[in-house]
Nucleic acid binder design. Structure first.
Lengths: 191, 191, 191, 191
DNA sequence: GATGAATGAGTCTTCATTCAT
DNA sequence: AATGAATGAAGACTCATTCAT
């Protein structure tokens, strides 16, 4: 069995690109089919329906990112290093594959659609790191859940900053240290 | 002189509520009409089409918020006070009218649709405050544009924190001081 | 009671202009109202509905033209003179009020809509003139009904010739003698 | 290789029949779909939209007729023969397929909709034949363009004569020689 | 005599999806 | 694995018309 997955990969990419650009609701199966240059019916050979196309795509990417972030985090000891590593991983994903990154951003609210019990691992990862840091007294006691939101907002909005701002292909990675520092200050990292 | 009706206001509210809940593309004119309990055609007496319904709604709210934020800011001298005031204004809007707040959040990307020359006053407001604070040496030199994004991300994601988290009607205002402090640290407010 | 008919006349003109330009089915009550700059509802003060608006307009114009043609015809003795007079009347109407002329052309098939017993006087007028001319031996025996159609087609298509052809405002009257002669030859006027 | 269907042909026929009977603007896609007994959406697999449905239909028929008339004309030497042949071709089309003929008549003004550069070959064909006949001294010098209009009007109105007049299915072909003779007299064919 | 608001039926068109081939 | 044809439901929007004011 040769590279039969060829078409599926093309669909994945096209769907991510289109959804990143216009949002889930704004794109149609026809749009995707046209982009890949197959018939609409062909899409249904690879995905049960539109909903599961989006969901599977989201889930695969989300889990991959969560795993990478978890690995990056576990490899570091201090919260400072953890934050630095997480911001760097996100920045590199953004710079290497904007479509994928933005797709995941936009697909966040997809969780309404998704099987209810699906636990969004990503914010939890950060929240637990913060809780551990409180215990280790790296940061003062605080509402870890709120801090998680603030840190995530900082990172995500920085990505949007690059996305929308003037020189079309502004990279995020160069800002990663600055952003990580800011995140450290949000959670009041000692030092 | 024909009857004065409050239909337009009802449409405004219904549209904001529905869009806040599901996004612009996911709701139909029919949805709005049903919510208001008028015919679809009635909507078109008050708005030229769906696009301008969303745009007019967005614009009116956006300008009102921008003005309020500008006023809040101008009334304060220090960046610390300005940040505190701005966060408080946002928090109060969120708590008093979530639909309106979230509608504006979701409608951000609407600017693609909008007349291209429309200047989003809101982030600029903050950016200029930061630039002035740099000049006044309240904060160290920094990329004011990036800092703006990070501060905004912090506030917005905090709102989403309240929106999505467990006790259904979690209020944002109580967190306002905490958030404002975090914003101060992001931009490295002295003391 | 002063010139209360002001509005009605404006509606008449606007309707004729629009229908002449786009056809009955292509224009809406709204189009007419906008052209006259009154509300749509105002139209219904002057006409029962769209159908009767078109019908009344058609009928008034049609009868006026029919009367004028009848008068022109009765004032002449020979078929040659009658044909000349009829072509001249049509040409002058076309040149003085294209909208009215074209409106009548397009509204011809309106007779399906109209009270069934309405007798289109116009072709009959010509047909009887031809029959009389046959009796008087001005023209040879022939199918008067077919000849009527051919003569009318000649006149009408000449009008369309002026309407569509290059110099925008080509007048029909200068061609009237040529057209009348051609009509004479169609019916084989002696001499 | 998916099933070959005859749906497109059925749509063609139904559209021509309905348009011939009621005019382009009076018929809806739904009307056509119902006549063919398919869903409305099915129409859009065969035509991009209503406009192009009408245009493609018109264009194909128009070109076919133009070619046939050109061939008929080129096969004859004298203007008398050319006129006779052209009238006969038109008459036979009318008698064999009224819907098609009338559709083309009604669709004439469609050229406003059409790509502006579309050259209506049909009247030009006749106009050039007249110009050549003038050169060959078969007919006296005259405004060939006006004569073209008069000849066409004669033929077309004769068709309408058959269409509207009393015995429902009156044939045009029997009148063809009479009509052709009349056309000859319009242009003053010698003898 | 005129108006803005409203409506139900209808317009063209696109959607996600299915199915025979 | 892939396709063109087909569909029912829904999309945005327009229509002719009515009605309270």
């Amino acid at each position: 069995m040769p590279r039969q997955t060829d078409t599926k990969e093309k669909i994945d990419r096209a769907a991510m690109r289109l959804i990143a650009a216009h949002g889930v609701d704004a794109i149609s199966m026809r749009d995707i089919a046209r982009e890949v240059d197959v018939s609409e019916a062909a899409l249904y050979r690879h995905f049960k329906n539109k909903e599961s196309l989006v969901w599977e795509l989201f889930r695969a990417n989300y889990e991959a990112l969560a795993e990478e972030l978890a690995a990056a985090q576990e490899a570091r000891q201090t919260l400072a290093d953890k934050l630095g590593a997480m911001v760097r991983v996100c920045s590199e994903l953004f710079d290497s594959d904007r479509d994928r990154f933005v797709f995941m951003l936009l697909a966040q609210h997809i969780q309404k659609i998704a099987p209810n019990d699906y636990v969004p691992a990503l914010p939890l990862l950060l929240e637990r790191a913060l809780e551990a840091a409180i215990v280790r007294d790296e940061i003062p006691p605080q509402d870890a859940s709120l801090s998680t939101s603030m840190v995530m907002g900082t990172v995500l909005q920085s990505a949007l900053h690059c996305l929308y701002h003037r020189p079309e292909a502004l990279k995020l990675t160069p800002f990663a240290p600055t952003i990580a520092d800011a995140c450290g200050r949000i959670v009041q990292l000692r030092q």
